Simulated assay, not measured.
Amino acid sequence: MALLATVSEYQSILLMVGGQPIQIALEPPLAEQVVDFTGGAASTQNPFNDATSIIRIKVNAPCSLQVATAPSPTTSMQPMGTSDIEFKGVAVGQRLKVGFVSNTNYA
């Protein structure tokens, strides 16, 4: 089975009538990338869009991740479990990527 992570990039959150923010990313995403980390650590091919401020991460296997300009994730970094979904805020315009590595210690 391929070890995959899907990363969706968003610019902003949804505003309700009256201008109150709610914790929902505004669709459609600016970009989506799939990362295959079956063979070891791997990261998104492209840096995040300059307007990206929120990323959504979905994985199909236990892993650890790192968000950085040149990610080099290890199993001691942020863990995610099988089928987890996480939203993370990222600094805009920083040319960030997200990297993944399998982490069988976290299931």
Rank of each mutant, 00 (worst) to 15 (best):
G40E: 12
G89R: 15
A5R: 02
E27M: 07
Q78R: 13
V92E: 13
E86Q: 13
P73V: 08
R95D: 14
V90D: 11
K58G: 02
Q78K: 12
K88L: 13
A2T: 14
F87H: 10
A51N: 11
V7M: 03
P79K: 04
S64G: 09
S76D: 09
S8H: 10
T75A: 03
L4V: 01
Q23W: 14
P62Q: 10
I55C: 03
A5S: 02
T74Q: 07
L4N: 04
I22R: 13
Q11P: 04
I85Y: 07
I55T: 04
P71F: 00
T38K: 09
V67C: 02
A2C: 09
I13T: 15
I57N: 01
E27Q: 05
V90A: 13
P79F: 07
A51E: 09
V98Q: 02
S102P: 08
S76E: 09
F100L: 02
T74D: 06
G39H: 14
G19P: 01
Q78G: 09
N103V: 07
S64K: 06
E9N: 07
A2H: 08
S72I: 10
I54D: 02
L14S: 03
Q11R: 14
I85T: 11
F37H: 03
I55Y: 06
G93T: 15
N103H: 08
T74S: 11
P28W: 02
I22F: 14
G81W: 10
N103F: 02
F87W: 11
M1W: 12
E9G: 08
V7E: 08
I54Q: 06
I13P: 05
M1T: 13
A5D: 01
T74M: 03
A51R: 10
Y10P: 01
A68T: 00
A91F: 15
I24V: 15
P62R: 02
V67I: 13
C63P: 00
F87M: 12
F37V: 04
S8W: 07
A41C: 01
S72V: 06
G40M: 10
I13M: 14
Q20D: 06
S83A: 11
A42L: 05
I13L: 15
L14H: 04
I22H: 07
I24C: 09
P62T: 05
G19A: 00
T52G: 08
A61W: 07
E9I: 05
R56G: 04
G89T: 15
L4T: 03
N60P: 02
N46F: 11
E32S: 13
T75C: 04
A91C: 15
A5E: 00
M80D: 03
D50Q: 14
S12K: 12
F48P: 00
P28R: 00
A42Q: 10
Q45T: 15
V67D: 01
